[in-house]
Amino acid sequence: MGKVSTRHIRQLKGKRPVVCVTAYDSIIAGLASEAGIDLILVGDSMGTTHLGFDTTVPVTVPMMLQATASVVRAKPDALVVADIPFAIIRRSPDFVLETCARFMQEAGADAVKIEGGEDVAPTIALLTASGIPVLGHIGLLPQQVYQLGGYRKFGKTEAEKEQLIRDAQALEKAGAFAMVGEMIAPEAAAAVSAATGVPLIGIGCGVDCDGQVLVYTDLLGLTPGYVPAFAKQYANLRETVRNAFSTYAEEVRERKFPS
């Protein structure tokens, strides 16, 4: 297939769904690439899946740079997109540009992902004009969990659906090559997809999006505790890994390993 580009992702609109998963290290990134995944998102979801935080808010730029560089070192054919962490987009345009450039120059990312709609479109336009590809993110914005007071689905009212359409169109106009839609009511997600010319990659948004993304620990059955209802589990590696550790411990204690 060769290295996936932002142009390739954009051109999948209307042809076939974009396949996206998260990854935070070179091992998982390499496996995802071997499986033919189109887009690897180095998500700030790393905070809750790997670092033990309750939300994504504590994740910092240095943490994301390190994870992104690890993913890039796997040399995946998939497009590598790095999440820009909490509150960065709300700082000065020059600071945002400098930070996003670091993800491409220092970590080797192919693009960045930024949460927000109409309100952040001017900054995204600056980034894309500067040569930094941007994956947008509308609907539920996890970085705003404290301001929202929790997680919920968006687009259930006509007013919210119209706002989501405006957000998506503003991001497209600003140069975003695609966008993630999170926890959007399926009917609204379908309307957003129909109203824009770039792919809407859904998570918890139903089947009528232009692609799907899952957190890989949910997909592989590694997530402890709560797993979102929309996240299909394709393996139960948590049990497999626990059993492997248990067998190893038993063999060491019984002097069966090393043999």
Rank of each mutant, 00 (worst) to 15 (best):
E106H: 07
L51N: 13
G181T: 02
S246A: 15
D218G: 06
Y151G: 11
G139E: 02
L200P: 00
A178L: 06
G36Q: 03
H137M: 01
D94P: 00
Q169E: 12
A195F: 01
T22F: 06
K256F: 01
D83R: 04
L148I: 00
T196N: 05
S246I: 10
M63E: 14
R238V: 06
T56N: 00
I37Q: 08
P224S: 01
M183E: 10
R152L: 13
E34I: 12
E160C: 07
V4C: 11
A231R: 06
T196W: 01
E34Y: 10
A101L: 11
V227P: 12
Y24E: 00
R90T: 02
P133D: 09
D83W: 02
T240Q: 06
Y226S: 13
A35Y: 04
T60C: 00
A32V: 09
E239V: 12
I114R: 06
D54R: 15
I84K: 06
L31K: 13
G221Y: 06
A249Q: 12
R152D: 08
Y146W: 13
S259M: 02
G117L: 04
V42Y: 08
A74H: 06
R10K: 15
G206T: 07
C205Y: 01
I203K: 01
I37D: 00
D44G: 04
V207H: 13
N236M: 08
A229H: 12
L41M: 03
V19L: 14
V61Y: 10
V81D: 07
I203F: 03
I88T: 09
L31A: 14
V192Q: 09
I184M: 02
I27Q: 01
R166S: 04
L140W: 08
V59G: 01
L12H: 06
L97R: 13
L171Q: 08
E160T: 00
A101I: 02
G36W: 01
A74N: 07
N243W: 03
A109S: 04
H50P: 00
K161C: 14
L148G: 00
P17I: 02
N236F: 01
E250S: 14
V112N: 03
M63K: 00
D77N: 14
D38T: 10
K75Y: 06
A87R: 14
A190I: 10
A176E: 10
Q163C: 13
G225P: 09
Y151E: 00
L12V: 09
V213T: 06
E106D: 15
K75M: 08
E118H: 05
L141Y: 02
L220Y: 10
D218I: 03
G47M: 10
G52T: 03
Q233R: 15
